[in-house]
Design a protein around this nucleic acid. Sequence first.
DNA 1: CTGTTAGCGCATTCAC
DNA 2: GTGAATGCGCTAACAG
Lengths: 339, 339
Amino acid sequence: MSKRKSITIVEVAEAAGVSIATVSNVLNRGGIRSSQETIRKVEIIAEQLGYRRNTMAAGLSRNKTSELGLIVPGLNGYYGQLAEHLQIEAHNSGFHLSVFSSGGSDPDIERRNLEVLLQRRVEGLICHGLAMGFDSTRSIVNSGTPLVLINGWNWPEDIAIGAVNLDFAGACKQSVALLAASGCKAIGYVGSKRSNVIDEQRRIGFIAGIQQYGNGIPHELVDGKGLGVDDFLKSFIQRHSTPVGIVAFDDHVSLPLLTAAQRLGIVIPNQLKIISINNDYIAEHSFPGLTSWDIPYTFQAQTAINKLLIKIGHKSDSNQEPEARDVEVPLTLIQRETT
Amino acid sequence: MSKRKSITIVEVAEAAGVSIATVSNVLNRGGIRSSQETIRKVEIIAEQLGYRRNTMAAGLSRNKTSELGLIVPGLNGYYGQLAEHLQIEAHNSGFHLSVFSSGGSDPDIERRNLEVLLQRRVEGLICHGLAMGFDSTRSIVNSGTPLVLINGWNWPEDIAIGAVNLDFAGACKQSVALLAASGCKAIGYVGSKRSNVIDEQRRIGFIAGIQQYGNGIPHELVDGKGLGVDDFLKSFIQRHSTPVGIVAFDDHVSLPLLTAAQRLGIVIPNQLKIISINNDYIAEHSFPGLTSWDIPYTFQAQTAINKLLIKIGHKSDSNQEPEARDVEVPLTLIQRETT
DNA sequence: CTGTTAGCGCATTCAC
DNA sequence: GTGAATGCGCTAACAG
């Protein structure tokens, strides 16, 4: 345990017999030329003194932080994965990403996180639509900090520089098409209303699918939360001829369906077919294996980070024409035994 | 979009017709008394000017950051939950927690994260044992930044101020006891070696359980990774009389076991009993429901944060006698249909 | 109660 | 190539 006071360039400068300017140059700026001798000398001294640059001082001085902020509703499942990938992408571009969970869309926590991030003078913000309220988000735009939304549909034009949304609607629409094509006599959607806009996108896609490919097929939409899964499944199958198909909100919603099917002796995929979203661990290891839409985390993360960096001016738009403000990221279907 | 330059206390001071010291006092220092009039005046002005304190400047000046750092191997499952709870606890104590994922124990990323955190002058560090290597961790102690380990067993005394470990060994030992008591004729452990020390703790507990409660019962330890689950289960059941019992590394490892049992027509819990660890979503919604050890996230988070804050001097030890350096946190068993 | 002043640690002109 | 000087935005004594 060394002394509380960490060592600064001043001490390095003294020990090396040079000025602090020189130390600063050789240590954190490749651009300035110095004699090989001083370079080595300074580096050695700094090393053995255990010098560690003070981020705050540096940031204050140069008026930039190389820091990005992320606010997500939670850190589990999709959000955790997303955060991890974003962190990697940010790092690859020389930035670092501070991750905050708004604790399941708690508006107070959200505001506080936002405030902390803004006070740190992050150069850009990435927020998940579910984690943000319109009003508190307004304060960002006034701060001049660029914001890109993840899975934020229909946000006011002026509030963010862009959005990177997963094409849940498209996935659900295609799911319906597939189920219909594989002979389902009825198709249901089991959602998750508390994920409001996320659920809404799926419903939109589901209904679009029914209209386009359903051909008058009977269909119904229910919410997974508080659903008596056994009763629902039994009734759904009895009221229609088999096979019936279900589009599920995600793999978490699907697991109870699988479970119920086992219990009721419903044969998958002969009597019941399921397509869900996320393609997480559950999808791969459940019985039967879940057909599920895979999420392109890396691509989504890259896209989001790029949008920010281009805006910041740290990176130039590599494409000829500027990218669309909002981009819809397609998912890819992984077929397993539930279809 | 306002100007790039954010407004400072200087501008607030001018607009309010007071000195910057006064502004600083009323805005970010509750302790100093000021006349109600100036207080209101300053607050109003600051508000309408959109003043936002610059964290870097404040930190530099007061030589403290009110920031804590966390390094975990990932952000999924247990780690995500842990991070979230730690963030909450930190917040409750007026600190904020910067979360970093070391990308599955990548030593380079680990070092970089550590460096970033140290350069930020975080006041304390929380690291998951799996995310850290001994050597790079050494540099922390020299920095004088207190470190508390999460699930880090057998670390050198001098490296951390303490550890908060989940009692996986105890849970596994008890699991064996339960399985034996409920008539299992053989007991197996399905682990996850790539989680090395975490897996090791479970093995230790498992073996201790066998020795203490096994009474010469046949047992075996295998690794879930790359295991031919179907073959293993079939063979395990054929080689012994039923019921047989299995202690699984966690719910993720259990799911494939459940799946295989379904496929093979093995009856749970008559022929096969399973106890696993984590009690996550899978445990609750799988079929049959998994008996699993629940993790006391909040308690673990509180304990870790408290250790740090006490060391920092931000919080006094509320207990009479100082807490043990390392604390072992017990899990609680949630019984479901696999036992 | 309020204003003056002196840094915090570092980056950055601009002379030498 | 290198060094003295200036300022980033804010806090912390210390005067008034």
